[in-house]
C-alpha cells in the first residue's frame, strides 16, 4: 500500500458510494428551500439572512457527510490494515479528508450561486460567500474527522458526534456570516477572512494529530 494507491482507492470509494454525498447535498438544498417557506419569503427578510442560511445548511450537510467517514473502513477491517501498514496515519487521514472535502466543496460551490439568487443575496456578496466557504469548509472537515474517528465504533454515534463537534463549528460559522454581513454593509472584511483561514489552519495542524489517536482508541 502506498499513499497514492490509498488516495486512488479513497476516490473510488467516494465515487461508488456517491449516494452518501448526494444525500448530504440534498439535505443542503432542502434546508435552504424550507427557510423561505417556513419563515418569510420576502426579500426584506431573506436578503440579509441569505449568507447565514447557506452557511448553516453547509455546516449541517458537512456533518451528515462526515458521519460515515470511517464507518465502513472500521467495519471491513481496512482501518486496522491502515494502522498496521507502516504508513503515517496522519497523512492517510489528511488524504481522506482531502478527498471528502473535494467531493463536497465542488458541488457546493456550483450550487451556491443558484441558491443565493433564490435567497436574494445582495449583489457583490456572492464572491465573499464563496471565499468564506472555500476557506472555512476545510476547517469543518478537519474538525469533523476528529469527531467521526471518536465515534466510529459506536452504533448510534451520529448525534454524539454532532454534539462533540458542533461547538467547534460555531467560530467558523460566526466569522463567515460576519464577513458576509460586513461586505453587505460596505465594511472591511479581510480581517474576518484571515481569522477563518487561521481557524482552518489550526484545524489542519490539530486534526492529523488527534484523529490517529482516536482511531487507535477505536480499533481494539
Amino acid at each position: 500500500m502506498t499513499y497514492f494507491s490509498y488516495f486512488k482507492a479513497e476516490c473510488l470509494v467516494l465515487f461508488r458510494r456517491k449516494q452518501n454525498l448526494v444525500n448530504a447535498l440534498l439535505f443542503f438544498a432542502l434546508v435552504i428551500v424550507l427557510f423561505p417557506l417556513g419563515v418569510d419569503p420576502s426579500k426584506a427578510f431573506l436578503a440579509p439572512a441569505a449568507g447565514g442560511i447557506i452557511w448553516c445548511a453547509a455546516a449541517l450537510a458537512t456533518v451528515i457527510s462526515l458521519e460515515s467517514m470511517f464507518k465502513e473502513d472500521y467495519a471491513d477491517g481496512s482501518l486496522e490494515q491502515l494502522l498496521v501498514s507502516g504508513l503515517s496515519i496522519s497523512w492517510l487521514v489528511l488524504l481522506k479528508v482531502l478527498v471528502h472535502w473535494l467531493g463536497m466543496i465542488i458541488p457546493l460551490l456550483l450550487l451556491t450561486p443558484i441558491f443565493s439568487e433564490m435567497l436574494f443575496l445582495p449583489d457583490g456578496v456572492l464572491g465573499v460567500l464563496m471565499t468564506t466557504l472555500l476557506l472555512g469548509t476545510p476547517g469543518l472537515f478537519l474538525i469533523g474527522s476528529i469527531g467521526a474517528s471518536l465515534t466510529v465504533s459506536l452504533r448510534q454515534g451520529a448525534l454524539l458526534m454532532l454534539l462533540l463537534i458542533l461547538p467547534f463549528y460555531f467560530p467558523i460559522i460566526i466569522f463567515s456570516t460576519s464577513a458576509i454581513q460586513a461586505v453587505a454593509s460596505g465594511l472591511p472584511y479581510s480581517g474576518l477572512l484571515a481569522i477563518i483561514g487561521a481557524i482552518s489552519l489550526l484545524a489542519l495542524v490539530m486534526s492529523p494529530l488527534m484523529t490517529p489517536i482516536c482511531l487507535k482508541a477505536s480499533v481494539r
Binding site: K8, A9, L12, V13, E72, A75, D76, E80, Q81, V84
Partner: peptide
C-alpha cells in the same frame, strides 16, 4: 497482518482490492 476482518472493500472488485494493496 491478516486479521478476522479481512480489510477488503466490499464496493471494490477483486482486482481493485488487490491493486489497492499492491499498486506496483
Amino acid at each position: 497482518y491478516i486479521s478476522h476482518a479481512l480489510g477488503l472493500k466490499s464496493v471494490f472488485t477483486v482486482l481493485e482490492n488487490i491493486r489497492w494493496y499492491f499498486p506496483k
